[in-house]
């Protein structure tokens, strides 16, 4: 059966990884745009099935971390390994592609394909990147659309959906690829306030009900406290605080984190 749930898929492959329990290992990664250093000598280890929230002021480099992990940015130096396989420096194309098929990313602006229906958006990955048959891809697509509460909208065009609905379709599109690592880049920042809840509910369910490793950049502190195991506070390209979510958010150890949190919470 194609429709293995995400949790099952993770377990099966997990066993083959000869006991390496890290999903992400980043060492000494730097990245600048022109003369602006966005990441400076970053080290980061995330265990299998960990849910980690990245917080910090805008421009602090947290989104860039996700983009490096998704292969959208090339670091200037350092090493990146996912599930025990090096992806930077780049391995041979076939190896890289095999590893990266386990990584999915959801964008702030949804980035749905505007000329495809919701169903077709979700089918595109399994069909084209994994070579599934149309029928199998459609079956998978319906399943994940149901998972994000978007059953019944299969034939809708992105332009006909609200922001929250579009973002849920975008999440489904990523889940259809059965990733083991899910990167969420400020997925609620572009939404009207009343639509934020429905998307957070979906992510909350993913974080409790699946074995996905999740890395999320977010400005929703309460949500981060409840859904994440760990919080990383970024400032000017370095991690200034790293600890269990509740602890960091309730009782920040670093002056910078205190100031950031009080600024965010006082909004």
């Amino acid at each position: 059966m194609r429709g293995v749930d995400v949790a099952g898929a993770a377990e099966v492959t997990d066993a083959t990884e000869s006991g390496d329990r890290t999903a992400i290992r980043v060492s000494g990664v730097s990245k600048s745009f022109g003369s602006t250093a966005v990441l400076t000598d970053l080290d980061l280890v995330v265990g299998m099935r960990e849910k980690v929230a990245l917080i910090g002021p805008s421009g602090s480099g947290k989104t860039t971390v996700l983009r490096v992990l998704a292969g959208l940015e090339r670091p200037d130096g350092g090493e990146v390994a996912l599930f025990g396989s090096t992806v930077w420096p780049r391995p041979p194309k076939a190896v890289y592609r095999r590893v990266m098929l386990d990584v999915g990313m959801v964008f702030q602006q949804f980035n749905l394909f505007p000329h495809m229906t919701a169903l077709r958006n979700v089918m595109e990955g399994p069909m084209r990147a994994k070579g599934w048959s149309r029928g199998a891809a459609a079956e998978k697509a319906r399943e994940v659309l149901d998972m994000v509460g978007m059953s019944g909208y299969e034939k809708s065009w992105p332009a006909q959906l609200s922001g929250g609905q579009q973002q849920r379709v975008a999440i489904a599109r990523t889940l259809a690829m059965e990733p083991r690592l899910l990167l969420l880049d400020e997925v609620t920042s572009a939404l009207d306030p009343e639509l934020v809840g429905e998307v957070l509910a979906v992510i909350r369910r993913l974080s409790t009900d699946t074995d996905l490793t999740i890395l999320m950049v977010t400005h929703e502190m309460t949500f981060a406290a409840r859904s994440a195991d760990r919080v990383l506070m970024f400032d000017s390209g370095v991690v200034v605080e790293n600890g269990p979510a509740q602890e960091v958010l309730r009782n920040p150890g670093h002056e910078r984190t205190r100031r950031f949190l009080s600024a965010v919470l006082e909004r």
Binding site: F33, S35, V38, G61, R67
Partner: peptide, 15 residues
Amino acid sequence: APPVTEPTGGEVALR
């Protein structure tokens, strides 16, 4: 190539 967009909008884009 996939075009590289500015990462965070803020200060980098104003450069």
